[in-house]
Design a protein around this nucleic acid. Sequence first.
DNA 1: AAGGTGATGTCAGTTTCTGCCATCAGGAGG
DNA 2: CCTCCTGATGGCAGAAACTGACATCACCTT
Lengths: 193, 193
Amino acid sequence: MELFQERGYVRTTVEEIAARAGLTERTFFRYFTDKREVLFSGSSDLQKRMTDATTDAPEATAPLDAVAAALEAAAAALQQHRDESYVRARHALLTAHAELRERELIKLASLTSAVAQALRKRGVAEPTASLTAEAGIAVFKVAFERWVTGTEPRDFSQHVRTVLDELRAVTAGSARPMEAARRESPRRRRTSK
Amino acid sequence: MELFQERGYVRTTVEEIAARAGLTERTFFRYFTDKREVLFSGSSDLQKRMTDATTDAPEATAPLDAVAAALEAAAAALQQHRDESYVRARHALLTAHAELRERELIKLASLTSAVAQALRKRGVAEPTASLTAEAGIAVFKVAFERWVTGTEPRDFSQHVRTVLDELRAVTAGSARPMEAARRESPRRRRTSK
DNA sequence: AAGGTGATGTCAGTTTCTGCCATCAGGAGG
DNA sequence: CCTCCTGATGGCAGAAACTGACATCACCTT
């Protein structure tokens, strides 16, 4: 990250990164499959937290609410493990370089299918599982963007809740809503839990 | 595509591709920024169709339904312009090579923000616009996957409609639904149409 | 005929990434 | 203490992707 901020991502060579770490280029490629990968070391950890949270949600929890729990877990992990300056610097790099955004997107896709998998383990059928996971990660993306971009120091988990409610509003307010919903699960009263 | 099927994607060199087209490697890179890009030439066209469809939906149409129109447009374009064997071959390449999936994901992300942009032009506010676009593209992904993977020769647009209904079911059947919805739009009775 | 323009070719060079083999430190077992 | 094994690292050569600079050529305009 030091080097990336000194000379920018593209002009920083893998050899330089390795040297700064007291290693060789060859060794770098033994730890990271890619030059890009060096910016995504935490992602497998995040994924584990989120799938665990999905799996551990109480049995009666609706699919989307299990995913909401995963999002809360992610929010907690993010605010704990990374200081804000690192997150912002990283985010600046990602938005500036398409190759890095690509990598982020595939990480998010992997996250999505992992969450879908966790939902299936809960007994959620396809395509509900995939779809709920997709929607949940969409919420994650939008909320994260608003969190990093936003000026006011608002809580990430607060953003998550807001955006999740927005999602529910979006899909509730459109045509042809119901026959599938009735099939899926018994009507649920606004459980204050 | 010929070469990719003869020797596989990785063992096909850009020089070979260019030669097969009667050109030089250098010229290839004047037309395509990337080796990957050669498999995504149609994407900007698809994007235009979808944003147009979003923009052209009748004024009273709800956001998600405008996006549904865009999905219909995409389905029409796909079934018209590409024969099935090409679509399947391409899909096989994309699932086999992570670098290609990355590229596809960024194309879909670009599509998402273009659709969000089109929604904003309709007067849809943030974050509803982004969120609706994300959800819509999620439907596209899931429906496309089912279409290509599926054995029965079902219509793509048919898949789209099914998955869209599933999405509505997913978000309808979860907790804490309403305060955002109430803010967003006047109460809407479960319209049977 | 002269000049301009756009598409292509040629070439040299950088960087990423891989395969192969050598080295070296430390632990296990004799 | 010696030996063998193993895991981590370095060194090196090479393929392939990509870039920049310049040359060439066809074609069009004037």
